[in-house]
Design a protein around this nucleic acid. Structure first.
Length: 296
DNA sequence: TGCATTTGACCTGA
DNA sequence: TCAGGTCAAATGCA
């Protein structure tokens, strides 16, 4: 089996386990917070899986090469202070570049990060930002990520994840699954109809706003797109992610604000795959379920 | 006032 | 020796 297929399967298996836990949670407990956290985790895992299925061959080769290098180093039992032997996962995240991003702030991937350094990288125009989990000291969470803006496309950020989150992700901000939605929310507020004061987004309720919003699916996926810009079969890709009914409900104003241009099609091999279709269908169900549950 | 960010210095591996 | 990664004091912000 190909290495990337194993990685995807691993991600999806994690998603399945989390979904089971979520179901159990809903049956046996009334802990809304833990269920929200599980939903966020599931969405993140499916995002990773979709990304793995959709990266182009060059990106796959880079990821595989790094994975093998890591494996080799592990097998030699080399222990260095630099985190070269830790699990590393690289994502390319295309974002709307707003003011916050220009300042080099962290890409909001649902976790709570604290910036601890920035370095000019030899041969790169843009500096690399270093982030660690906010709960590093309180919960001994060793997750770290590096964010660097692409030299060729300023709307693409390469994000490297090192280490796993061991924190319980209890920060209000960390329970969101927005994938860099924040800047777009700023943009969207100009278009969104006025809401009553009491439901304006508050920091502690971002997950509710995020999941309650009818356009949430659109927000999630339009702010996370894939590095394969060559393939533009948007209809097939979008129809996998967004049900037709949802697409019909999107207002022209909002769909014209960038969503169609920012969602990049999956490779044909993914689009034509029944397996992949079922994954996307599951994702829809998960998102639908999350919204219905939160509304109820 | 507490927390996050910035940034120069320092450390480490290649 | 140099590039990349981390530390920690200074600074900013709510």
């Amino acid at each position: 089996m190909m290495m990337e297929e194993k990685l995807v399967i691993n991600e999806l298996e994690q998603g399945r386990e989390l979904a089971k836990r979520l179901m159990s949670n809903l049956k046996h407990t009334s802990s809304i917070e833990s269920s929200k956290t599980l939903i966020s985790e599931i969405l993140r895992i499916y995002q990773n899986a979709i990304f793995m299925l959709s990266v182009n061959e060059d990106d796959k080769n880079i990821i595989l090469k790094r994975t093998r290098e890591i494996d080799n180093k592990d097998s030699k039992n080399v222990s260095k202070k630099r985190k070269i032997s830790e699990e590393k996962k690289t994502e390319k995240v295309k974002v709307f570049v707003g003011a916050g991003q220009e300042k080099g702030s962290s890409i909001d991937d649902g976790w709570c990060w604290r910036k601890y350094g920035q370095k000019e990288i030899h041969g790169s125009i843009n500096p690399r930002g270093y982030f660690r989990c906010t709960h590093r000291f309180t919960q001994n969470c060793l997750a770290v990520k590096q964010v660097q803006k692409s030299d060729t496309d300023p709307t693409i950020f390469e994000v490297k994840y090192l280490g796993e989150h061991t924190c319980n992700n209890s920060s209000p901000k960390t329970t969101t699954t927005k994938f860099s939605v924040s800047m777009l929310e700023e943009e969207n507020r100009a278009h969104v109809t006025e809401q009553p004061e009491d439901i304006k987004p508050k920091k502690t309720e971002e997950v509710m706003i995020s999941l309650e919003d009818l356009e949430d699916k659109k927000n999630i996926f339009r702010t996370f797109s894939f590095s394969n810009h060559e393939i533009e079969n948007v209809g097939g890709w979008k129809s996998n992610i967004f049900p037709e009914t949802l697409m019909e409900n999107l207002s022209p104003a909002t769909s014209g604000s960038g969503i169609t241009s920012e969602i990049v099609a999956a490779p044909a091999s993914v689009e034509n795959s029944e397996t992949a279709d079922s994954y996307f269908s599951s994702l829809d169900n998960i998102i639908d379920f999350g919204q219905d549950w939160l509304w109820s």
